[in-house]
Design a protein around this nucleic acid. Structure first.
Length: 414
RNA sequence: CGGGAUAUAGUGCAAUGGUAGCACGAGUGGUUUGGGACCAUUUAAUCUCAGUUCGAAUCUGAGUAUCCCGACCA
């Protein structure tokens, strides 16, 4: 698109109430707008990034057999009383409200209850299992202290997948598989190198669970790295002798390296907790009722967006990996709009995503904006570049540019 | 939820209890055009409610919001 048409503008200074690097850069570059603590609006550039991250996750969930749904955020009290999770004493971050006719409801912070209830209408026989359901949707959590920009909001995006299996054994096969699926997603998002499968306490449903922790000073968690090559770690808050024994970890706690990290995903074995609460059963081959064995698998596209910015920036701005950049190319014309226009049309014709800076402003401002927004490739068309034989191409994360003939640009960047 | 801090144009900052000013942004006119260029000119603000005072951005109280530390975090 033409940048002169983009309604957002960049800012030199970040609002003083925004301390986290990811929110500062995203606000300055016009990706998001802060509505209140922990609640952000996504503007065109931000929405594009969010959708690209979501689509990568969606593709991987589909590849493993996930079926996408979209559940309502509105949650009636009665559903949650079945699992004892309506009480504010049990779940302290509910956003609750009421209906005009007096019924109480809450805004969903997760969807185990809701989905278990739905699946009761569709799971009857062992032939119906296993089945994997997911959604990419907003979650609401009344955080006592929202912080860290997109990484800990009151309203945020979540991909939550739920598995329904015949047995614990069948569940575990899928559970293990999901570890690899998650790592594949992080690989596509360019963060695999820094992401560790992290052993954590399992909450009330199972002894252990796995978190996915990405090394970053901006993180809220601390992990002990167990195996740097296999990317295995243990969450510091759960690290104890029992874990060492249970996982056969042959190590000495004081030799371990501690790192700060961002929790970018988690997977849980839920066991029968929800199937018992909602009497979610199937008939086995002998015609006997059996409870469904459940698991849940979370990953937040909005937190990932924040984390990706934390991992990919320099003093001038964001450096988007190509997979989730809002555009592939930032085309900048310096007083050569005619040639730039031709390149723009050629790129569009080839379905290459391009932001064309056609504004009548100084070169310095265009470069500064381009660095701040962080589109992976920058193409500059100017008198100078034309004299040198074409347009300059430079990657956002590289210093040197090179000249490419104008007729070769589309071919080269396809 | 405990502790601490802050609240002034769209953004960032000033203003001893006495004329709310600067920079960026935005508008207009002009000069520029390879790293947020320049000149002229315009625009736009004291969180809310009380109180003290001749007079409050400034002092007091309450409220609200925001940020930080901690706690919490399926």
């Amino acid at each position: 698109m033409k940048q002169s048409q983009l309604f957002t503008k960049t800012q030199k200074q970040a609002p003083k109430d925004e301390v986290s690097r990811n929110a500062q850069l995203l606000i300055r570059a016009g990706f998001i707008n802060k509505e209140m603590a922990g609640a952000y609006s996504y503007l065109p550039l931000g929405l594009s990034v969010l959708n690209k991250i979501s689509n990568i996750i969606r593709e991987e969930m589909n590849a493993v057999g996930g079926q996408e749904v979209f559940m309502t955020v509105l949650q009636p009290k009665e559903t949650w009383e079945k699992t004892g999770r309506w009480s504010d004493k049990v779940v302290d971050n509910w956003f609750k409200t009421s209906l005009k006719n007096g019924g109480e409801l809450g805004l969903g912070f997760t969807h185990e209850e809701s989905l278990a209830k739905i699946m009761k209408n569709y799971i009857y026989s062992y032939k119906d299992l296993p089945v994997f359901i997911y959604q990419i949707q907003e979650k609401f959590r009344n955080e006592e202290r929202a912080k860290s920009g997109l990484m800990r909001g009151r309203e945020f995006f979540m991909k939550d997948l739920y598995s329904f299996s015949l047995t614990k054994e069948e569940h575990e096969l899928f559970y293990e598989k999901m570890k690899d699926v998650y790592m594949k997603v992080f690989d596509r998002l360019g963060m695999k190198e820094k992401t560790y499968v992290t052993i954590s306490s399992g909450g009330s449903f199972s002894k252990y669970s796995y978190e996915f922790q990405t090394l970053s000073e901006a993180g809220e968690d601390t992990i002990y790295i167990i195996d740097k090559n296999k990317k295995i770690a243990v969450n510091k808050q759960d690290f104890n002798d029992e874990i060492i024994a249970d996982f056969n970890l042959n190590l000495n706690k004081k030799d371990l390296v501690q790192e700060k990290s961002i929790e970018v995903g988690d997977i849980y074995s839920l066991g029968f907790k929800y199937s018992e609460a909602f009497n979610l059963t199937y008939k086995d081959k002998d015609g006997k009722d059996q409870f469904v064995f459940m698991g849940s698998y979370g990953m937040s596209p909005s937190r990932l967006m924040g984390a990706i910015v934390e991992l990919n920036n320099d003093e001038n701005g964001i450096i988007w990996p190509e997979a989730m950049a809002p555009f592939k190319i930032h085309l900048i014309s310096l007083g050569q709009n005619e040639e730039a226009q031709k390149i723009y049309e050629e790129l569009e014709k080839n379905n290459i995503e391009v932001l064309y800076d056609d504004r009548e402003i100084s070169a310095g401002e265009k470069f500064a904006d381009s660095d701040l927004i962080g589109i992976p490739y920058r193409i500059v068309v100017s008198k100078k570049s034309l004299e040198n034989g074409g347009a300059e191409i430079k990657k956002r994360n590289e210093k040197e540019s090179r000249i490419v003939k104008i007729k070769d640009i589309a071919k080269e960047l396809k």
